[in-house]
Amino acid sequence: MDSTVQEKVVNIIKENFEAEVLSVESPYNFLTINLKKEKIIEIIQYLYDHNEARFQYLTTLCGIHYPDVKQIAVMYQLHSLTNNWRVRLKIYLPEENPVTPTLTTLYSAANWMERETYDFFGVKFTGHPDLRRILNVEDMIIHPLRKEYPLEDQTREDKKDFMFGR
């Protein structure tokens, strides 16, 4: 996406939601907009209905944990198939209680993506029709993709250093 198109998309959002935009960046030429968390669904709805933009295809949705700032980001990546525009929207939620409204009202595809995000990051999507774990077992008590859970089980006894003469 060239920079004029990117500006255009930013202006479309700023027309109605100027106050919601935290920052705009373009890493590797991919428009990324950081937004305040409160009105995210309204903004996506607006982009969906907008006559010119028509971001009606939800490419993907995922969580990102930033332990340094104690935040969990939810990334929405939208695609406007009519214009071939792509945009990445990010909101930041507090680590201890990440809650945000669901996007399933707009895109059916968001259902499992949100379940996956809940499963791995513990983000609670209010209004989601069926917010259960999806890939992990149901009685799991942690949200494994958070950074506080290292890849290997720290309680393991069979991999202690002395076993390897260290």
Binding site: T60, H65, W112, M113
Partner: peptide, 15 residues
């Protein structure tokens, strides 16, 4: 730091 894979099967199987 994070790798997310958009897996087409996962997304369309819900339909």
């Amino acid at each position: 730091f994070r790798l997310h894979m958009r897996r087409p099967c996962f997304i369309y199987y819900q339909a």
